[in-house]
Design a protein around this nucleic acid. Structure first.
Length: 567
DNA sequence: GCCGTTTTCGGCCCGACTGTTTTCAGTCG
C-alpha cells in the first residue's frame, strides 16, 4: 500500500524532471506546492478521501496522484523519464548549475551524466557554448569531479562548533555594529547546508576586507558589497558560510528574511501583499512607497497583526494557523533530571554539578550515573550506588536552595532484564532506564526490552528513546507508536535528550503526539553541558510541545510531589 | 498547474551576485 511519503516523493521527482525539461516554472512549483500540502496535512493518505480537496491540489495533480494510488504506476513520470536521462538529476547539486544550463548541456553536447560532463569540460566543448565560458567550464569540471563527496548537510553538532569559531572571529572585527546567526541553524534544524550571518555596519567594504582574512578560507564563492560567501575549513569539513552586510536600520528585517524558512517568508509576503505592502530584507514598503523599519523582529510580526513566531517554529507556514502561546520556553525549565558525575563517566563531582545547577537558578536536579552493566562508563556497583545515594541525601540537606534527587540511568540489558533489582531501585528517588548496547537487535527484541522497562514500577523515564546520533547512526529499531502507547499506559515519561548529537526524541515525533509527557534533559557529563538545554527546548518548540507536557517545567513543589508519587 | 468578492485570465515573493555580456540570464537563498 502506498504511503503519503511515496506520493510526495513522486511529485517532487516529477517537479525535478519538469524543471530540466524547461516547463513553466509556475507549473513546476505547483507540483512542489501540492507535495507540501499533502505532507503537512495531518491525516494519513488513507484518511484523505479526495486529494483535490487539499489547497494547492487541483484536477491536474489530483489525476496524477490518483493514477499512482490506483495503479501503482505514474504514466506522466514514466514519460518524463523517457525524455530526460536520469543521470542529469544529480547534476542539479553542482553549485552554479541549474536546470536551464543542464538542459543546454544535454541538448547541445548530449551530456547525460556526471561522466559526460567531465569529458565535455576536458575536451573544452562546454566553453564553446553561448552562455558558458572558460571560467564556468573550469569550475564545472572541478565541481563535477567532487560531486557527491562533500556531505550536503551537516549535523547541528558540527555546525555548533563551526559557529563558535566564527563568532570569535567576528567579535574581533571593528566595523561590525552587531551580527547574528540566521538560516536553518538559527531555526535549530537537525542539519544545515550552510551557516548564514547578518552583519550591520556603516562600512561594508571594510567588513568585506576583514572577512576575507578568515584564516581557514578554502574558497571564495562570492564577494560583493552586501554579501560575502566563503567555503571555510573546519577540521575535515568544508562548510559554506554566507555573510550579509546591511545598514543598522534594516538589521532585523534582514535577520528575519534570512532566518527563513522560505515557506514561512512566502506566507509573510502574502500577508503583506493583501495589505498592499511589500516585504524585503530592507524593510516593509507601504503602498505609498514609504519604507518602515523596526528595531526588533517582534515588531515586524506585530506590524502584520500576527503573533510573534520564534525562529525554531518558522517552518512550513502552518505555524501561522496554530496557537503557539503555550509552547515551552527555555525559562520554563526549572531543573535537569539526567546527568552524570565522576562516579561514572562525568567530568565533575556531585557538588560541582549542584553548584553549576544553582548558578542556573535550577530548583531541582537528579543525579543519574550509569549502572553497573555499563563498565566502559564506570557504571556503579550496587554498593557504590547505595553509597552515592546516602551521600546525595546528605548533600540535599546542606543545599537549601535546590532539591537534589538521587537516581540512576540504568541499563536495560540485551536479554530484557534490568541492571538493578527492584529492592535496590526502591531506595532511589528516581530511575531512568536506557538502552546502551545491542543496537542491532530486531524490533521485537528492542520493543521487549522497552516494555520491561516501562512496566517496572520504579522506572519513571526512558532516556534517548531511539539511540540515534544525528548524521552518524540511525539508532535501534524502535516502533515509536508502540513505545508511546506503552509509555502512556504505564505512566512512563519519554526523554527528549538535549545533547545536540542526539536530539532524541525528534520534533516530528513530538508534533504527532501532542499529549505525550516528556522530560527535556541534557544528559550532562560536564558542567558546560547544561547549556545543551536550549537545543532540547528548541527541538521541543519545533515539535510544538506545550509547557504542560514537560515534567521538568514543573516548579519545585509540584516536581517534588510528582517524583514522590507512585507511578 | 492552481487560484479567485476586483473569478475563468493573469498572476504566482524578492533581490543580489556571477559570468558572460554590451544590457542580461541564470542561479541562489
Amino acid at each position: 500500500m502506498l504511503t503519503k511519503k511515496d506520493i510526495t516523493k513522486m511529485l517532487e521527482t516529477i517537479a525535478v524532471y519538469m524543471e530540466i525539461k524547461g516547463e513553466n516554472p509556475f507549473k513546476v512549483s505547483a507540483y512542489r506546492k501540492a507535495s507540501q500540502s499533502l505532507e503537512t496535512d495531518e491525516r494519513t493518505l488513507q484518511e484523505i478521501e479526495d486529494v483535490t480537496s487539499l489547497k494547492g491540489i487541483g484536477k491536474g495533480v489530483g489525476d496524477v496522484i490518483n493514477e499512482y494510488i490506483e495503479t501503482g504506476n505514474q504514466s506522466y513520470l514514466d514519460e518524463l523519464k523517457k525524455e530526460i536521462p536520469e543521470g542529469l538529476i544529480p547534476l542539479l547539486k553542482i553549485p552554479g548549475l541549474g536546470s536551464k544550463k543542464i538542459a543546454k548541456l544535454y541538448k547541445e553536447l548530449n551530456v547525460k551524466n556526471k561522466e559526460d560532463l567531465i569529458e565535455a569540460c576536458e575536451q573544452n566543448k562546454v566553453s564553446e557554448l553561448p552562455g558558458f565560458a572558460k571560467k564556468t567550464e573550469q569550475k564545472l569540471l572541478e565541481e563535477a569531479k567532487v560531486l557527491g563527496q562533500r556531505p550536503e548537510r551537516y549535523p547541528i553538532n558540527t555546525m555548533i562548533k563551526a559557529h563558535e569559531e566564527i563568532n570569535q572571529f567576528l567579535d574581533g572585527i571593528e566595523d561590525i555594529i552587531q551580527y547574528h546567526i540566521a538560516g536553518s541553524f538559527r531555526r535549530m534544524r537537525e542539519t544545515s547546508k550552510d551557516l548564514d550571518y547578518i552583519i550591520s555596519t556603516n562600512d561594508e567594504m571594510k567588513v568585506q576586507e576583514a572577512l576575507l582574512k578568515f584564516p581557514n578560507i578554502q574558497e571564495k564563492i562570492a564577494v560583493g558589497k552586501t554579501k560575502v560567501s566563503l567555503d571555510l575549513l573546519f577540521g575535515d569539513d568544508v562548510i559554506g558560510v554566507d555573510f550579509r552586510m546591511i545598514k543598522e536600520e534594516s538589521f532585523y528585517h534582514t535577520l528575519q528574511h534570512f532566518t527563513g524558512s522560505k515557506d514561512h517568508n512566502i506566507k509573510i509576503r502574502q500577508i503583506a501583499k493583501d495589505r498592499n505592502e511589500k516585504v524585503s530584507e530592507y524593510g516593509i514598503e507601504e503602498s505609498n512607497g514609504n519604507i518602515i523599519t523596526y528595531k526588533s523582529e517582534e515588531e515586524i510580526y506585530k506590524h502584520f497583526n500576527v503573533p510573534f513566531i520564534q525562529p525554531t517554529m518558522r517552518e512550513d507556514g502552518t505555524e501561522f494557523d496554530k496557537d503557539l502561546s503555550d509552547i515551552v520556553q527555555l525559562d520554563d525549565i526549572n531543573g535537569d533530571i539526567h546527568m552524570h558525575t565522576t562516579y561514572s563517566d562525568g567530568a565533575f563531582s556531585i557538588e560541582e554539578m549542584i553548584e553549576a545547577a544553582i548558578k542556573r537558578n535550577y530548583q531541582f536536579i537528579c543525579i543519574t550515573d550509569h549502572s553497573r552493566n555499563l563498565a566502559v562508563a564506570n557504571g556503579l556497583s550496587i554498593e557504590r550506588l547505595l553509597e552515592q545515594n546516602e551521600k546525595i541525601k546528605t548533600l540535599n540537606n546542606q543545599y537549601k536552595e535546590i532539591d537534589i534527587y538521587s537516581g540512576t540511568e540504568m541499563d536495560i540489558k540485551p536479554d530484557g532484564t534490568l541492571d538493578y533489582p527492584d529492592e535496590v531501585l526502591k531506595e532511589l528517588d528516581y530511575v531512568i532506564a536506557a538502552i546502551h548496547q545491542s543496537f542491532n537487535q530486531s524490533e521485537a527484541e528492542i520493543m521487549h526490552r522497552l516494555k520491561v522497562a516501562c512496566e517496572n514500577q520504579y522506572v519513571r523515564h526512558i532516556a534517548h528513546p531511539t539511540g540515534r546520533i544525528i548524521g552518524r547512526r540511525e539508532g535501534y529499531q524502535v516502533n515509536m507508536d508502540e513505545l508511546i502507547k506503552m509509555a502512556k499506559e504505564t505512566n512512563t515519561v519519554l526523554e527528549l535528550n538535549a545533547n545536540p548529537q542526539r536530539l532524541d526524541l525528534n520534533a516530528e515525533v513530538l508534533k504527532q503526539h501532542p499529549d505525550l509527557m516528556i522530560t527535556i534533559n541534557t544528559d550532562a557529563h560536564h558542567i558546560d553541558h547544561f547549556d545543551f538545554m536550549k537545543y532540547g527546548v528548541g527541538t521541543a518548540q519545533k515539535g510544538w510541545v506545550k509547557k504542560s507536557q514537560v515534567i521538568n517545567a514543573k516548579d519545585r513543589v509540584s516536581f517534588k510531589k510528582w517524583i514522590q508519587s507512585n507511578k
